Computed example of a mutant assay.
Amino acid sequence: MILKGFKEKSNKKHLNKLLSQRKVSVADSKIESLGVILNIDEVDDFELFRILANNINVRPNRLKIIAYSANKKENLSTWDDCFNPKDFGWKGTIKNVELQSFLNTNFDALISYYINDVLELKLLTAKSKAQFKIGILQTDARLNDLIIKTSLKEFDVFKAEVHKYLTILNKIKK
């Protein structure tokens, strides 16, 4: 238990370092690829994000969804990656190859769709090489470039707001 506390403190320190070094890019590029990080313990409908991607003109082959679960569940959707706390090491290291591959992908946009204050989810959002990060209101506003204040159950509102703001920012490909 003591080691678990030290590991968490090490990961929090790494997260703060990542967020303090973060450079916000103001590129005028269109969104052609989309990554989604979600907490499957809060939302388990992957289809919502396929509809959202279609709504902002992202092709299905340019969409990648990964899910986090606090518990290791074998019956989770196997068509996309699902990870848990055991996939993280000390100082923010990632032990899962697929998860590291997701983080190294230069998505045009990343959606962080979770509300619970989970260190591993925040680490993933911070470590992602996505150009533009979109999320729901969380405790740390440094994680995302665009923050939309809705509840998890109001996905239609979230989808409409994402479309509206991406249109205003001229990021939707025609």
Score class of each variant (00 low, 15 high):
130 A>D: 06
53 A>C: 10
44 D>I: 02
21 Q>H: 08
144 N>Y: 10
110 L>R: 05
170 N>I: 02
123 L>M: 11
13 K>P: 01
14 H>N: 07
74 E>R: 05
121 L>H: 02
169 L>M: 15
158 F>R: 08
91 K>L: 09
97 V>G: 03
4 K>S: 13
77 S>E: 05
83 F>I: 10
94 I>Q: 02
161 E>D: 04
76 L>H: 01
170 N>D: 13
133 K>A: 09
44 D>H: 10
53 A>I: 07
9 K>G: 07
104 N>G: 07
141 A>V: 05
17 K>D: 14
21 Q>E: 14
67 A>M: 03
37 I>V: 15
147 I>R: 04
38 L>F: 12
4 K>A: 13
140 D>P: 08
105 T>R: 10
130 A>T: 05
41 D>I: 02
151 S>Q: 11
26 V>H: 14
53 A>S: 15
66 I>Q: 09
70 A>K: 10
132 F>C: 05
73 K>D: 08
2 I>R: 05
138 Q>C: 04
137 L>Y: 11
77 S>N: 14
128 S>F: 00
9 K>L: 14
147 I>N: 07
130 A>R: 01
34 L>M: 03
110 L>P: 06
62 R>L: 06
115 I>M: 03
43 V>S: 03
51 I>D: 07
5 G>T: 05
57 N>F: 01
66 I>W: 09
32 E>I: 03
142 R>Q: 13
36 V>H: 00
